[in-house]
Design a binder for these strands. Structure first.
Length: 572
RNA sequence: GCGGCCGUGGUCUAGUCCGGUCUAGGAUAGAAGCUUCCCAAGCUUCGGAUCCCGGGUUCGAAUCCCGGCGGCCGCACCA
């Protein structure tokens, strides 16, 4: 029985999580969270929210957008086209392969294979004689498998929609509105915690690979001409364990350890904001209980990267059974998404950049000679006028200098337009912001925290969850159930509850059994009321990790507990 | 999707090879009570199992056969 099995067994037993729709046989890739699991997951989400959003108020804002979005959004985002795999199946042994990978493997380098249609790939396969790499059997037709969950909006089957595979698109399509509402300041981050769905071909690994999961993402918009991170000094000494693109290419396995400042100076990380978020992520994951030595960032090679990304690092964490597992992705998405939405929606999603000093420019203005045009075109004059308006005056001028210009069958002659040169002052220019994106899977983090916390002591399970995320923070026990001790204990339980902590009251079984129960759900503190309490109004507070007890006066209990629950814990 | 192994109370498991003695045993966890009280002590009582689902073979199936679902491992997949 390895650690994964032990954690899964504990989680079932104590109400953390288990397979979804279990009474009907279960469905692969979906997970149900019980009371303890939900509290733990919420706490992890809360800590993420505090780390990435609340401590950046004025810079990063949280929003909430629907899971279902119309097809057009994902056509624009490129997911309908690219969030697919080209699959080919061997007709003999029925093994399935990534078609493009198989072709490259057997036919060598082929330019532009990435963008090829399934037909083109079919042709390549017969042309190059590509066969099954396992049994040498013939291959079937190449097909595309899209990982988007598809649905309809309302009763109309033609209104196709998809469940979002990432929360990001909700932030991109809302960029302009929020940018306006938040007084047009850049940089600006938008964040979202919510459900996403990906129709994985064959998910395994329990909570690690799900078809529906909670994502926690920041889309951080900045001016590519002012890419500096204003907060970089706060993290410049944070050490990142990095496998750069070059190291991945040369199959290096041991990451280098570099300071954030160095990683930027050496160009390992292309943008400061990405580096900043990677540093925050290192701290965040440490706080969940994963030592920095079992964390690293690995660069994705160009052909492994998502279609939108110019640079991506995966943050990996070492798990007992599965080795290095991705817990977050850090992508430099450039202006890809906003540009695509500008193109597909026809809306202006750009920002305005003021020049430090406005500079004068000479502009060409086209002034149509209406009388001259109407002499030639009569009732169609309006069409000519709008055609002239639609062309950049400077361009029109140079084109007309070499003869008439034709637009939609209309002939524009040089005698129709008079060009004036004007002096104007330009105070700035429009541009499309760039985006750095850190993106986390909350379910994986929940499992990670549980695995890191799992320990055994004298045949008992002790979940050493960081107090900041423990589902239950305090347990209160009466040592005996008589002589007013029960009532006193219950009133202390009430006191702790009113102080804003999650407290459990347990009066059943021996005191040792109650400590053991509390340990199994990772409750960091157990308060016991005994005879001495009745005499001097003190209680014992027992520490989950050391099993040591401290006598604390009841009137100082709240402060005692809070001071030990609130601080962040960085485990190195 | 393919191949291998597997699926028994909440959990872990005995039984499956070789069908009947299994109206499924144990441990642990849970509830009620007694007792003890600072690390799962003890006693009593209680609840809880369509033996993953469906079909077949048989006088008889947890056990054998077929199909499905689910899990793990390997291959493949994982923007």
């Amino acid at each position: 029985m390895d650690k994964y099995d032990k954690v899964v067994e504990l989680c079932r037993r104590r109400g953390f999580f288990w397979p979804s729709s279990e009474i009907y046989g279960g469905v692969a890739g979906f997970l149900d969270f019980g009371p303890m699991g939900t509290m733990l997951k919420r706490n992890i989400e809360r800590r993420w929210r505090e780390t990435f959003i609340q401590s950046h108020h004025g810079l990063v804002y949280e929003i909430e957008t629907p899971v279902v979005m119309p097809a057009r959004v994902f056509e624009a985002s490129g997911h309908v086209e690219n969030f697919t795999d080209v699959i080919v199946e061997c007709l003999q042994c029925h093994k399935r392969f990534r078609a493009d990978h198989l072709i490259l493997e057997q036919a060598g380098e082929i330019q532009g294979i990435e963008g090829m249609s399934t037909k083109e790939l079919d042709e390549l396969i017969s042309e190059k004689g590509v066969r099954c790499s396992e049994c040498r059997g013939p291959l079937g037709k190449v097909s595309r498998f899209n990982l988007l969950f598809r649905t309809n909006i309302g009763p109309y089957s033609e209104s196709v929609a998809y469940l979002r595979p990432e929360a990001a698109q909700g932030m991109f399509v809302n960029f302009k509105s929020i940018f306006n509402a938040m007084r047009e300041r850049l940089p600006m981050g938008l964040a979202q915690i919510g459900k996403v769905a990906r129709n994985e071909i064959s998910p395994r690994q329990g909570p690690i690979r799900l078809r529906e999961f909670t994502i926690m993402e920041v889309e951080f918009f900045f001016d590519p001409k002012a890419p500096g991170c204003t907060l970089i000094d706060e993290v410049s000494d944070v050490r990142l364990r990095l496998l750069t693109e070059d190291m991945v290419k040369t199959k290096t396995e041991e990451p280098m350890e570099v300071r954030v400042a160095e990683a930027l100076k050496e160009g390992y990380i292309k943008t400061e904001w990405l580096a900043y978020f990677m540093a925050l992520s290192t701290r965040f994951i440490s706080e969940l209980g994963a030592p920095t030595a079992s964390q690293m960032f690995v660069a994705k090679l160009p052909d492994e990267r998502a279609h939108y990304s110019a640079q991506t690092f995966d943050q990996l964490v070492r798990l007992d059974r599965w080795g290095w597992v991705e817990v977050s992705g850090h992508a430099y998405r450039t202006d890809y998404d906003l540009s695509r939405h500008i193109q597909y929606s026809g809306q202006d999603l750009s920002a305005f950049r003021k020049f430090q000093t406005p500079h004068p420019v000479r502009v060409t203005v086209a002034k149509p000679k209406v009388e001259r045009i109407s002499a030639d075109y009569g009732k169609e004059t309006g069409k000519i006028l709008s055609a002239i308006k639609g062309i950049d005056p400077g361009a029109l001028k140079s084109r007309l200098s070499s003869g008439p210009v034709e637009v939609d069958g209309l002939i524009i002659r040089s005698e129709y337009v008079e060009f004036l040169e004007k002096e104007e002052t330009l105070s700035g220019e429009r541009f499309v912001p760039h985006v750095a994106e850190p993106s986390f899977g909350a379910d994986r983090l929940t499992y990670l925290a549980l695995e890191c916390a799992y320990t055994e002591r004298e045949d008992r399970v002790v979940l050493k969850l960081p107090p900041s995320i423990a589902p239950v923070q305090v347990s209160v026990f009466p040592l005996v159930n008589r002589d007013g001790i029960w009532e006193k204990a219950f009133s202390i339980h009430d006191l702790v509850r009113r102080a804003g902590m999650i407290s459990e009251f347990d009066d059943s079984g021996s005191i040792g059994r109650r400590y053991a129960r509390a340990d199994e759900i990772g409750c960091p503190f157990a308060v016991t009321v005994d005879y001495q309490t009745m005499a001097d109004d003190t209680v014992t507070v027992r520490d989950r990790d050391s099993w040591e007890q401290t006598r604390v006066p009841v009137n100082g209990l709240k402060e005692f507990l809070w001071s030990r629950l609130a601080p962040l814990r960085f485990i190195t």
